[in-house]
Design a protein around this nucleic acid. Structure first.
Lengths: 410, 410
DNA sequence: AGACGATTTGTCAAAATCAACAAATGAACG
DNA sequence: CGTTCATTTGTTGATTTTGACAAATCGTCT
C-alpha cells in the first residue's frame, strides 16, 4: 500500500459504511463486511458487476444459507476462522459466486466478522492482499464497538429469554414491548426449540449457535444455554409453513452439527409456535416434554420433533402417574392372550400390539412382523375369538391400545 | 271324582313322585309338576305317548325356553297365573306339543307351580277338570314344604351373593365351597349382570326374576335386589360362547320385559365372566361401571353390554379425574380449528371428531355428516393443513381422539 | 407312522379406497 | 355486477384391501 493509500485507514471512520466504501475505493472492487454469523454489516456502494451471491446477501441482509453451507463443505470458513491471512476463493458458478478474496476480522482468537472483496474485472496482487490484512486489523476496531454493544445486548437478550420461559413476564404485550426494546420487532409467531447435547462447553456453544444462526429457515431471536441444553427462541421464516420450516431447521441443524463437529446423538424438541406471547412459556415446557418423552419412549417416538406429535403418549404418561392405574387389574383381554401364548407357544399379544401400533393396517403390520398378511388376518380372527373384542369398534380399539401400552409400562 | 278316587288324595304322600304317580293313575295320562319357574319338580312314570315337549322338559329338568315363550305369547301362562281353574290347551304342532290340560298350584295369590296333564289317547271331561282343581289344591301342601325350604335357601343364597360382591369372602376356594354348600356345584365360570329399573317393587321383582330364569342362555345361580337394581350371579350355558350367551340373554331379557310388562328403558351391564371366583367382586364392580358409563356417555356407548366394550372410555373417565388435566391447556389443534370455524362458518372440529369416532372410515363418517366423501377428504386435508397434524400416524390420532373427548367433557 | 388340529402361506376375484381432475355452488369483496 | 376464492359434489381409473378358499406346514397325540 502506498503511503498515501495507507494513510487513509489510520483516520477514524464515522460509520462502517464509510469504512467499507474506503476499502472498495482502494481495491476498485465491491466489498462486503459481515459479522461472525454472516449477517450483513455493511457493503460498498460500488456495485458494478456484483454477482448473484452478493445480491442475495444484500437483499437478505445475510449470506444465503446454501452459500454458507458450501463454504463449510469447501473448507473456506474453517480456514478463515483458523488464520488471519486473506484467502483467495475461486469462482463457484453453480451458486452464483464469482472470484473473491476474504479475510477474517479478529480480536485475539475470536472471529468478529469477515471482509469479502469481489474480484470484478481485476485480480488482487500480493501487495493488495497484504494491504487487505492490514485493513482487516483496522476493521477490528470498528467491529469491536459493535460487538461490545452486541455482547451487552446479548446479555439483555438472555435475561429476557429466561424471564419469559420461567414465567417471570407473562402478558403478551409486555413481552412484545421488551422484545421491541432490544431491537426485536415484528410481532411474529414465536416458539421454543431445545437441543440437548451430551456435553457442552463455551467454545462448542459458540460454534453451534453460529451453526444454528446460519440456517435461515427460522430466525433465532435469542439463544441461551442451560447446562447441556441449548434453548432457542425462534420465529419461522414463512408465516404459513411454520411446521415445515422448523422441521427443516432441526434436520439441517442436526446434520450440520454432525458433519462439522462429529456430534451425533442430539435430542431435540420443539413446542408449538404461538402468536400470543403468553404462551412462550408453554412452548418451552412443551419442548422440554418432547425431550423427556423421547427419552421415556425411545422406540415408539423416533422421529418426533414437535409437542403435538407426542399424541397419545402425553396421556399415557399422565395415566401412569395416577394411583388408580396401579391397583387396576390387568385387562382380561391381555390375560387371556398371555395365557394362550404360554399354552401354545404363540405370540398373539405381540401380534395385537403391532396391529394396534400400525392402526389396523394389516400390510404394514405384516411387514413389521415378517409374516404373510393372511397369517395376520388369521391371527386377528383368533385374537377376537379368544378375547371377544371387536377391533372394528374404535372405542374398544383405542382402549385396548392404552391397555397394552400401560401394561408394558408397568 | 268318585269317593274312592277322591279318598286317595286326602292321604299324605311321602314324596312328590308318589303324588304325581297318583294323579297320573287317576287320569291315565302322563302328568308333570313344575315349580313357578317351570323347573321340573316331578313327573309320572306313565310314559306312553309322551310328546317331544315333555321329553325335552324331563331331559333338561325344565321346560324348554321356546315352549315357555310360546305359552306367553299365546296367553297360556298369564291365564294360568290369574286363575285357579284348569286350562285346556290345544295342540301346538310346531314345537312338539300335544293336547294338554294345565292348572296352577297356588297358595293365596302366589303361584307355587303348575300341573300338566298330557291328553294322550284320552280327553278330560268336566268331572276330570273339577277333580284336577281339587288335586291342585292338595298339591299346594306338597309344594309349600318345598317352597319353604327354597325360600330359606334363597335367603342363604342372597346373603352369600352379598358377601361375595362386597368382598366379604375373597378366596376362590372359599366361594366355591360356599356355593357348593347351597347346592351350586360345577365350578363353572361366573359373572355378574346388573339391570337397573326405573322403579321396582316386590311383585315386579318376582316377575322379572321369573322372566330371567326362563331364559336358558345363562344359568342364574343367585339373584338379588339392591334398590332398583337387579343383581344376577350367572354362568353362561355354553363354555366357549360366553359372550354371545350373555349378549343373547340380555337382549331377550330386555325384549321380554318390554313385551310382558311394558318396561322399556332398562340399563344393563355385565362384568367379565371369570373362572377364578376371586374376581366375582370385580365382575360386579365392572357391571356397575358399565351402567355408570352408559349414563355418562349415552351417545357414544349405545350398544355396550360388557365392561370390556367400554374401551377407551375407562381411561377418559380416569383422565377426567386427574388434577393435571384441569389446568392442562386446550390443545392448540382444537384451538386452531375452533377459531377457523368461527372465522369461516365451517365446522371442521366436529368433522374431525366424527372422522375420529369412525376411526378414519371416510365413508361412514360422510354418512354420519350427511355429505359427500370427497367433501370429507377435502376437509380433512384442510384440517391437516391448518393444524399440521398427521392423522396417518396412530400416535397422533389416538392422542387427538383423547384431546377432543376430554375437551368436550370439560 | 399317521391322524388330527392349529397355523401359515398362496391365489384370486369382489369390494373398497384413493388420487386426480372437472364442474358446480356460494359467499365475500370491490 | 363480475371476480375471486373456498367449498362441495361428481366422475374416473388405478391401487389396495378384503374375504373366501385351497394347499402346505408343523407340532401333538396315539
Amino acid at each position: 500500500m502506498s503511503g498515501e493509500n495507507r494513510q487513509k485507514f489510520y483516520r477514524p471512520f464515522d460509520s462502517l459504511e464509510e469504512f467499507v466504501d474506503a476499502i472498495s475505493e482502494r481495491f476498485q472492487c465491491p466489498v462486503t463486511i459481515e459479522d461472525a454469523n454472516h449477517h450483513l454489516l455493511a457493503y460498498s456502494s460500488h456495485d458494478e458487476g456484483t454477482d448473484a451471491a452478493r445480491i442475495s446477501t444484500i437483499i437478505g441482509r445475510r449470506v444465503p444459507e446454501r452459500v454458507i453451507h458450501r463454504f463449510w463443505k469447501e473448507g473456506v470458513i474453517p480456514t478463515l476462522n483458523q488464520s488471519d491471512e486473506p484467502l483467495v476463493i475461486p469462482e463457484i458458478g453453480d451458486i452464483g459466486l464469482g472470484n473473491r478474496v476474504a479475510i477474517s476480522i479478529r480480536s485475539n482468537q475470536e472471529v468478529l466478522g469477515y471482509i469479502w472483496v469481489s474480484e470484478v474485472g481485476c485480480t488482487l496482487n500480493e501487495q493488495d492482499l497484504a494491504d487487505l490484512k492490514l485493513i482487516a486489523s483496522k476493521a477490528k476496531n470498528q467491529l469491536l464497538q459493535l460487538n461490545l454493544q452486541k455482547k451487552k445486548k446479548e446479555k439483555n437478550h438472555q435475561e429476557l429469554l429466561w424471564q419469559i420461559i420461567t414465567g417471570d413476564i407473562e402478558s403478551h404485550q409486555m413481552i412484545a414491548d421488551q422484545l421491541s426494546n432490544i431491537g426485536l420487532h415484528g410481532n411474529k409467531p414465536l416458539g421454543i426449540i431445545i437441543v440437548t447435547f451430551e456435553s457442552m462447553n463455551q467454545e462448542l456453544y459458540k460454534k453451534v449457535v453460529y451453526t444454528a444462526k446460519t440456517i435461515q429457515k427460522v430466525t433465532i431471536l435469542i439463544e441461551t444455554l442451560d447446562e447441556n441444553q441449548l434453548i432457542l427462541l425462534i420465529s419461522p421464516s414463512s408465516p404459513k409453513k411454520e411446521v415445515s420450516d422448523v422441521t427443516d431447521f432441526i434436520d439441517t441443524f442436526k446434520a450440520q452439527v454432525k458433519e462439522r463437529f462429529g456430534i451425533a446423538n442430539l435430542q431435540s424438541g420443539c413446542g408449538y409456535i404461538y402468536e400470543n406471547y403468553n404462551y412462550i412459556k408453554r412452548s418451552y415446557d412443551e419442548a422440554a416434554k418432547v425431550i423427556a418423552f423421547k427419552r421415556a419412549f425411545p422406540e415408539e417416538l423416533p422421529h418426533v420433533r414437535f409437542y403435538h406429535e407426542l399424541g397419545v403418549f402425553r396421556y399415557i404418561d399422565l395415566l401412569k402417574k395416577t394411583e388408580e392405574i396401579r391397583d387396576y387389574p390387568v385387562s382380561p383381554v391381555i390375560q387371556k392372550l398371555q395365557s394362550y401364548d404360554e399354552d401354545n407357544r404363540t405370540n398373539l399379544l405381540e401380534t395385537l400390539e403391532v396391529i394396534l401400533n400400525k392402526d389396523g393396517n394389516m400390510n404394514e403390520a405384516a411387514k413389521a412382523l415378517h409374516c404373510h398378511v393372511n397369517t395376520l388376518t388369521y391371527r386377528l380372527k383368533r385374537i377376537q375369538e379368544i378375547t371377544s373384542i371387536q377391533l372394528k369398534d374404535p372405542v374398544q380399539k383405542f382402549g385396548l391400545y392404552l391397555d397394552i401400552k400401560l401394561f408394558k409400562c408397568e
